[in-house]
Design a protein around this nucleic acid. Sequence first.
DNA 1: GTAAAATGTTCCAAAGGGGAACAAAAGGGG
DNA 2: CCCCTTTTGTTCCCCTTTGGAACATTTTAC
Lengths: 138, 138
Amino acid sequence: MSLEQIAYNIKFFRDQHNWTQQELADKLMISRSVVTKWENSTATPDIASLIKLSNVFDVSLDHLTGNYSFRNDLLKDFKRIYSSKDKPFDDEIVELMEYIMIHPMFKEQIYKLKKLPIKKQLSVQQLFSNLIDQYEKL
Amino acid sequence: MSLEQIAYNIKFFRDQHNWTQQELADKLMISRSVVTKWENSTATPDIASLIKLSNVFDVSLDHLTGNYSFRNDLLKDFKRIYSSKDKPFDDEIVELMEYIMIHPMFKEQIYKLKKLPIKKQLSVQQLFSNLIDQYEKL
DNA sequence: GTAAAATGTTCCAAAGGGGAACAAAAGGGG
DNA sequence: CCCCTTTTGTTCCCCTTTGGAACATTTTAC
């Protein structure tokens, strides 16, 4: 359950802002001891407080609670955000993003690839392509 | 405050799924009357319940609560919001996305990889990893 | 080492969530 | 239009749990 995550994150974001518990409590207009309890999982904020936290920290509720999963609407958010940047968005990219995120080792390898000299990159890509073709036929 | 928004949204998403209050209550393993109260702002779910709701409805907490914030540089904010120390959505991913978008052929190959049986995927990933290592040493 | 700041703990009252039972609407057939 | 079923709303009450104040402990700075 992500209730402990909330506790951790409250402290994390508070530290990130270099706020004392008292300062955070003031912003939320609550007692300081409550902040302590939140951060130690002795208590859990109600929803109104959680929303206030998300606002003073300027992070999403999902980030604050650690409630991320690959929900469609998150991907849609990304799609919306990213495609608004320059070009129309490619649905396949979203799938690949997810795939890469699920396979961190593979991700690292691609990351290494990206750092190789261009010519090597193209060679690797070519070999990779052959590899895939072979495995498709197996 | 978006507490009324939550009430509205719970009913909205429940209707969208064509669930009765009872059905929703069953999924959350709580009493039905509580759902009624949530939807009428007679009560507000605690955070654990809110997270469950976000999961059964498959929407983000921010969607569920109407806690939208509109930011200027969307991509930048998106990166900031979804990146954290465990980095489910880190800078590298965005870099890789761009890389893959720039190399459509490569993209297609990864796309093919993704569609292979799991075991083949892992084999390919392993070989790919070796390949990269080799090229790094050249 | 000491004083101040920051954080943690304990106690208690109050608030409010949750469940059960009852009440009221809403939807169909006949 | 009425009856029966389904769905939704309300009331009452228990009881968990929050939140605050005061006290305790730890950390920091000098």
